[in-house]
Amino acid sequence: MNCTSCQKPMQGSLLVCAACGAVQGDGAAAIDYFQALGVERKFGLNAGDLEREFHRLSRRLHPDRFVRATAEEQQNSLRATALLNDAWRTLRDPVERVEYLLKIEGHAVGEEHAGKGKSAERQPPPDLLEEVFELNMQLEELRMSQKMGETAEASVVADLTAAATRFEAMLQTVDERLAVEGAKWDSGESRAQAASRMIELLDRRRYVRNLVRDVRETLKTAA
């Protein structure tokens, strides 16, 4: 891709030309978040580098710098800033980054694979499902008694707190495994296998994440 203004080949972020400083126009709409931030398309990104790059580009693209520019340049700066912000919000979060990268690599993730594949294959391990369901039942009871103004039983609160801690550890394990598979993908070997493992991990992660969220929320009001 060449700069729409000076025609030199683009380097780094495709939103703004490193050579002449021109914010790129319409064409920039088709670029992905990695290209927007000017980083390699991979799972293992250095958080510090990413943040530095984001701030540098933010300053560069900031609409305030274009108040005296042409209407088109102002338009470009607004559009580029919006895209940059979206890119940053997505890529800064390791889990969202995984989902996004898999998606742009053409894998069906989350909502997109709804109803595809046999239901049995889409199901998490039965133990996990049972446990999540049972804990939800307990949570509901707790919320109900809260509503009636009763103080929660100490044993129930203790059980749920222990469950939340356990599930948080589970979440961490899943995230570590995501990082391992991501690194495999980044290295370029057996990408298909790494991708399908990551999709599986993400699927399981949603149950665990919901439970942690709901327990923590309910316990906050119980305390």
């Binding site: 989350g110 909502e111 694979h113 709804a114 239901s119 889409r122 199901q123 998490p124 039965p126 499902l129 049972e130 999540v132 369901f133 939800n136 699927d203 399981r204 992660r205 949603r206 149950y207 665990v208 994440r209 919901n210 439970l211």
Partner: peptide
């Protein structure tokens, strides 16, 4: 007993 991997609902 089933779950939706898309969102984690059960």
């Amino acid at each position: 007993l089933v779950g939706a991997p898309e969102c984690g609902d059960v």
